[in-house]
Design a protein around this nucleic acid. Structure first.
Lengths: 347, 347
DNA sequence: TCAGCTATGTAACACGTGTTAGTTGCCTGC
DNA sequence: GCAGGCAACTAACACGTGTTACATAGCTGA
């Protein structure tokens, strides 16, 4: 009978005792067959089978010093994250590499509203750090832990690999597109509320996109002050509500620039319900180019960012760092303007 | 200087040595402040700070016997899983509970094509087992490990909690709906290829849905043999291709029953490209009722299954089991037919 | 003044594993 | 017949933590 008090799980000591051998022999029987005679090996395996023994995962990990798992440090709660198609797609890219290299994927949301506090509770070989709007010590904490990590959509940080996207250029391109079509009454549907973060000097993707829009506006002698700014948290419904409100003014915009595709979908929903033709009366643009945007009616004009590639590259960099192979590469991925059917000259 | 050979990370022994105290004192300084004098506590914390010490996650987990993490045992690779909106939504439900209870979420894909082999490599307090088409010993393995688990979309298994959906009833409802409208030339767009699994006696959700369709057919004197069956792996594009092929015959169907919403989207894409009106000429139905289906044009007639609730309930059951609170509840969630604009009487 | 209690710190144990160094016995070869 | 080598196995270490049982000193109260 396994001696372990009441917790059930038999340990290698139990097997050793029952088989009349040492604990080492048990380990060899499982991991190093040729290091032990075939006869006793069979006996040990038999006893193990009878007792229902399985090597403990944590014990093995502690000894091996590796978990075969990579963590994704998320800025939002799991429910909000998985609700967002952007993250689903990003994680898909990460997952491709995990599949290939045999890693599991640990999703780590903030613990009690704190990303920092979540770090000690994740048993992983390395972290992919997502959308760190303001660095409140997470990077320092990871550094001192000596655990490899990669920054995504954050500020560039010497001492760690990073993958970013040319958000500024992409936003500039789409704004330019609308301006060249002749639009002057523009509205920006931003992901928010994060204006405070921007005001406080954060340089997340959001701030960069706004900067890109400002760039394009400046080229025609306009400024952000000439643009109407609305904010919606994240979902399609949020975009719907925000767009409805945008159209209530006495001089509604002729073009709505949404800072994510999902918000753009919602905006189109609102316009259709108001019987406003897209793009005949109002043009709408997105950002991301999710797969659905090509199927959406009207087919959405948007900025393509290589989300899956971003995830894949992040995982590649991380695994290289875990293996101690690479230094600290910084990659900035390009964007491209995808002109489809949701934009046209103003009426 | 920390003595540890070259691996970097200082351990509590290093801190103890540097502070001239025992290792226990270091532990107390961090976890049990009142067990030690304020003066030495400050000193220890100071030394720890200087050395850059952080308690090791694995060591702590091993001692505590808990990981604060729950695992999701997936039947497919991560890339395929996260590509599927159904799973994204299911994981969202699981995530809601994780957020609430402070758990992290470990996604565990098959290792070398084997779900079984993946189990020993996941450091979790319990598993949510998804879509176990055929039980090849996974349940036995989890049982012998003595780790709590919950079965989702599988056969009911005494000895473990489970959450299922009335797939059969849902499929029967939607088939009945089409038959009552007058359709007789039906096509089923199944998720596959898994016909072999069904033939081998597996009772996954897919088989149950097919059984439900057979039920409805029987009510009007028809059988599955009278229905055209096509299979598509999983994505919208897959559905598109399969539907195009379905329509090539000399007597194309007047209604397409897709076994998932995503496939239904693809089917509508194909019909639109062929200039076939939906629902005027051909009706299309889905299964799942994803959020997008209400926005889709034409608004999709489908079977709603409570995906998020399923995930939430699975996580609830699991956490109860981890805490040793509950027995082995079995829950079967209901479905409801959502009639929208993608179905009509045949021409 | 001394028994007894509290505050403080430590040694030892427990969690469960893999691996290295070392012991024993048997067989081979000269 | 015995040195040397090999096979089989074990003791001890390492991974890093939290916690329990014990020792010591100082203080309080009768």
């Amino acid at each position: 009978m396994p001696s372990r008090r009441a917790s059930g799980k038999p340990t290698s000591s139990d097997v050793a005792a029952a088989a009349g051998v040492s604990r080492s022999a048990v380990s060899f029987a499982f991991n190093n067959p040729q290091r032990i005679s075939a006869a006793t090996r069979e006996r040990i395996l038999g006893v193990a089978e009878r007792l229902g023994y399985t090597p403990d995962t944590l014990g093995r990990m502690l000894q091996a010093g590796t978990t075969n798992s990579i963590g994704v440090l998320l800025p939002q709660r799991l429910a909000r994250t998985l609700e967002n198609p952007y993250y689903a797609r990003f994680l898909m890219g990460v997952g491709q590499v995990c599949d290939q290299e045999g890693y599991t994927l640990l999703l780590t949301p903030p613990l009690r509203e704190s990303v920092l506090k979540a770090i000690p509770y994740a048993a992983v070989d390395g972290f992919i750090v997502c959308g760190l709007e303001t660095d409140r010590g997470e990077v320092a904490e990871l550094d001192r832990r000596g655990i490899p990590f990669v920054l995504i959509d954050s500020d560039r940080h010497e001492g760690a690999p990073s993958v970013e996207v040319d958000d500024r250029g992409g936003a500039r391109d789409v704004a330019r597109h609308l301006l060249e079509l002749g639009h002057r009454r523009l509205a920006v549907l931003s992901i928010g509320p994060e204006r405070e973060a921007v005001a406080h000097g954060s340089y997340g993707p959001l701030a960069r996109r706004l900067a890109g829009i400002a760039d394009a506006l400046a080229e025609v002698g306009m400024a952000m002050a000439d643009v109407r700014l609305a904010e919606a948290p994240v979902t399609r419904s949020d975009g719907y509500r925000a767009a409805r409100e945008l159209m209530t003014g006495d001089t509604p915009p002729t073009a709505i620039m949404a800072l994510s595709d999902v918000l753009a979908y919602g905006a189109v929903d609102a316009l259709q319900e108001l019987a406003i033709d897209v793009p005949g009366e109002v043009s709408v643009t997105g950002f991301d180019d999710l797969a659905e945007s090509a199927w959406f009616r009207p087919r959405l004009t948007t900025v393509r960012q290589p989300i899956v590639t971003k995830g894949r590259m992040a995982a590649d960099f991380l695994i290289s760092a875990i293996r101690g192979e690479a230094q600290h590469p910084h990659q900035t991925l390009g964007t491209s303007l995808i002109v489809r059917d949701s934009t046209a000259k103003p009426a």
